[in-house]
Design a protein around this nucleic acid. Sequence first.
DNA 1: TGACTCATGTCAATATTCTGACATACATTG
DNA 2: CAATGTATGTCAGAATATTGACATGAGTCA
Lengths: 154, 154
Amino acid sequence: MSQEETVGPLEESPGYVLKQAHAALRTAMEAALRPLGLTVPQYACLELLGQRPGLSNAELARGAFVTRQSMNLVLRGLQDRGLLTRPEQAPHGRALPTQLTPAGRDQLRAASTAVRAVEQQMLAPLSPADQRRLRDHLAACVAALAPTTPAAED
Amino acid sequence: MSQEETVGPLEESPGYVLKQAHAALRTAMEAALRPLGLTVPQYACLELLGQRPGLSNAELARGAFVTRQSMNLVLRGLQDRGLLTRPEQAPHGRALPTQLTPAGRDQLRAASTAVRAVEQQMLAPLSPADQRRLRDHLAACVAALAPTTPAAED
DNA sequence: TGACTCATGTCAATATTCTGACATACATTG
DNA sequence: CAATGTATGTCAGAATATTGACATGAGTCA
């Protein structure tokens, strides 16, 4: 019936709040990207390529937190739409360095603007100092959860 | 080749860091819950029921950020394992209030301990004050992204 | 040189999740 | 009382992501 009858300690769990924030951001991003005909993974791929041209499929997969297979499907879709290009033959190993096409750069520009607006909305209630703090704290959490213990006790 | 040659502004994007933190937490939770034979959605379901007994399928789905259909499958799995019970007939509307069994409570206790350890590890580099700040900031972000604009400009 | 290891791209099969849809039960309103 | 609206549980289909596996190319080391 009501949405906050008994506020259990669930709302106080850092993990739950993190998941909640992630879900809210993802939903907002989906809504912002839908008019552009892009999904969140597709946008992530474009954004990665815009910032680091020449990334391979496996590198893009790691950057977008998906498997190589999933990223491969994303890449094919974007390639079929003419937003990026991959050489037919690998210049060095087996990795195929991917590049954005001019159309891809245009799409990325529009998508990046839309996503940035969502981020602004998300961070609106926070002061610039708090925004930096939030980012740094999250980064610290990521480092603390890294499989290879950064500060090995042994 | 290297993993942080040119640190683009990607690492500075709040959304990306949030996604990164969520992925790291999820991976760590999966690893912690695997020995107990639980997946993350299953644990979320148990935790919700432990804190708010009698939740219905739809309410659990909203709390775990999945669809009713997905939560229904989770519930069936846990029910088949004897961790929770649902009445065969709805006492009031169509909602079936779910309850943990003693076995479910035991499983929840073990899982909760494991997950709490992961959270502790994640928050280890942060002071208690910063932990509170992080939680409050994330909650503020969630509120700012809520579909119903809290401070309607119109 | 030859054997070994590692990373990458790709294929196939499986799991998981979501979208769409429908019937039921209660509350609200005329 | 009857009609409408909302919420829930459930079914079926499609879309998506994942796990497992394999061949290829490059580097390493005896």
